[in-house]
């Protein structure tokens, strides 16, 4: 795979100082990593949250409730994924009022998730940041059909041009209408490889509350050149651990993430 640029681009700044989500010792945070595959790709972010909440209720887990007249389970999810994308990085935090034994609990949750969703990993997090405070980067693998309007070389040259520029403004459609965003500031790293009629792109993008680039927006210049995404997969979510990038369980990345998709 041709690495075009591995230097850190303009980032979102260091993570906020560590704040414990659970204010009292009586709460226990169980962090889970879920996978969306096959038909699960067509479960939207809101539907995913509801499906997970129902799974938890079926199991009658000791989840803490929000205050107020309409109490809800205290469950928080990482950043939303576009509908149609698969993912092996759907993280969520479950705030529990008790601490059931971890492996049995994980086994139980994994067994009761609906088809299309599965549990990859999970662990109690004792001194962590909330997912929304922690997450700053997301890695994606996109398989782009090259199309008839541009060659693979031209698409790679376009990618190179984006990474070498100071700014790369594009227009994108938001709920509030057309808006110009700077693509460059949201792309940390990217690499491309040609595989048959497809261009395989691995993207390491800004994600989270400070700066966020949607993968579908990152692809706009390529789509305008006739490329069409065949598949979009989120491989990981990351935040800062000291000077390094780490996943939400604290596993430090020694080099920038290799995208691994189950089944490849």
């Amino acid at each position: 795979m041709t690495t075009l640029n591995t230097a850190n681009a303009v980032g979102a700044g260091d993570a906020a100082t560590v704040t414990a989500t659970a204010t009292a010792n009586t709460f226990h945070i169980l962090r889970l990593r879920l996978q969306k595959k096959e038909h699960g790709r067509f479960i939207s972010h809101l539907d995913l949250m509801r499906a997970f909440e129902r799974t938890v209720r079926r199991l009658q887990l000791p989840v803490a409730l929000t205050e107020g007249f309409h109490p809800h389970y205290r469950i928080s999810f990482g950043p939303a994924l576009p509908l149609g994308a698969s993912s092996s990085a759907e993280y969520c935090d479950l705030i529990l009022t008790a601490r059931p034994e971890q492996s049995a609990l994980l086994e139980k949750i994994g067994r009761h998730l609906p088809p299309g969703l599965s549990l990859i990993d999970g662990s109690y997090i004792d001194n962590g940041q909330s997912l929304s405070d922690f997450i700053m980067r997301a890695s994606y693998r996109v398989r782009l059909a090259i199309g008839d309007f541009a060659t693979a070389e031209e698409l790679i040259a376009l990618g190179k041009r984006i990474l070498e520029s100071e700014q790369f403004p594009i227009e994108t459609e938001t709920r509030k209408g057309l808006r110009t965003i700077d693509l460059r500031s949201g792309i940390d790293q990217a690499q491309w490889a040609v595989s048959g009629e497809e261009l395989i792109c691995d993207l390491f993008l800004a994600a989270g509350s400070a700066n966020n680039l949607k993968p579908q927006d990152a692809l706009i210049p390529f789509i305008r050149k006739g490329a069409a995404p065949n598949e979009l997969h989120r491989a990981g979510l990351y935040g800062k651990s000291g000077q390094n990038w780490a996943d939400p369980f604290g596993n430090v990345l020694l080099k920038w993430p290799e995208v691994k998709i189950e089944g490849e």
């Binding site: 909440e53 209720r57 009658q60």
Partner: peptide, 8 residues
């Protein structure tokens, strides 16, 4: 029903 569906 609650245990099989998880409805709220």
């Amino acid at each position: 029903n609650i245990c099989s569906t998880g409805y709220a």
